[in-house]
Design a protein around this nucleic acid. Structure first.
Lengths: 196, 196
DNA sequence: GTCTATACTTGGATAGAC
DNA sequence: GTCTATCCAAGTATAGAC
């Protein structure tokens, strides 16, 4: 966010460790050593381990979203752009969980902090999706008459709900093997009803 | 080794954990839970965490060697069989270190226990290599006049020395990124001098 | 054989010196 | 800002009940 090179160094170190060891297996010493700092110094920049993790995920999610918008825009068909965008963001959620090997227990305990991340990225996502829907509307590709902004909210809400439903339906076991394909299939089903 | 199903269960659990988390990041609780035992019970079957690790590596090395002998035998050319066998066992060593993410510090501390493993597998390896060299000699593929058994000892010794040299040359940093290709290239260079 | 209880070590986090 | 010292919880390892 701000121009803070030391903080960015910690985030970089954290990113590498979390991807390599997973959230639970990464120690503050791992991150500190990689960033060339005593582990106690990390607390000057972050409140705790969770906050480092969420900051890492936030940074990567923003990069992912920017990339996703570019990739979606590359499709010639506006319907495909919308479909791609809304399903890929579900897949991405699964990837983050898999990569950082979050247990469901841990995932649930981190949920409140993910809410912060969610608020920070939501506005940008809705804006992009609204733009896509406006274009779809101009191309007469929408099967519903709702304003683009309102429809964007609905689709975004749906995409998030399906995403979280996968976690909720899972038993109290490991989260590394969650299957997000049913959620993606559901997303595509509802999209077919909205797009002409 | 012996017919001990509970012990094998622990080794299986250990193998999965070490491959997934690496040696240092694996806890006895991880292994115990996976094997359906209290972590204290592991001490009935093994002296400590290191011994579990070495037993896992021993088991996998034996399986790897059996597989390697089969694969080497599949090559039509006896020179290629010998070359394949002697270079692949160096590559395998690198793979074990990479997979279990041993730090050099840890690797060096485990070295004494690896010596035990080494003695247990050495005789079988030398025997197999001696057989290959006898065939090479019969096919007039050897450029040296030494007896096959003696040459096998030399080549085996060389292969091991090159393998360890890679670790020794590395600085005091992580071992996950060790490059064994120079060692393999050296092995191939010396082999060319021995094989016609 | 497997467990509970416990000693000792390492990881997460805070307080305070510089 | 960064470090040392320190607290408490979790991990390694042992002792001993059953």
């Amino acid at each position: 966010m701000k121009d803070n090179p030391k903080r960015d160094l910690i985030l970089q170190a954290g990113s590498e460790c979390f991807a390599r060891f997973g959230y639970e297996k990464t120690t503050l010493d791992d991150i500190g050593k990689r960033a060339g700092l005593n582990k106690a110094s990390l607390y000057y920049y972050f409140k705790n381990k969770e906050e480092i993790f969420v900051a890492v995920i936030l940074q990567e999610t923003q990069a992912f979203m920017a990339d996703l918008e570019t990739k979606a825009a590359a499709y010639p068909d506006i319907r495909r752009q919308i479909r791609f965008y809304l399903t890929e963001r579900i897949r991405r959620y699964g990837e983050v969980i898999h990569l950082t090997r979050l247990s469901l227990e841990n995932l649930r305990s981190l949920e409140p902090m993910f809410e912060v991340l969610y608020r920070d990225t939501k506005a940008g996502e809705i804006a992009f999706l609204t733009g896509l829907l406006r274009r779809a509307s101009a191309d007469n590709a929408l099967a519903v008459t709702e304003p683009a902004a309102a429809l964007a909210e609905h689709l975004f809400y749906l995409s998030d709900a399906l995403k979280h439903q996968t976690v909720r339906k899972a038993g109290p076991f490991v989260a590394g093997e969650l299957d997000f394909n049913p959620a993606i299939a559901e997303m595509e089903y509802w999209l077919k009803l909205v797009l002409r």
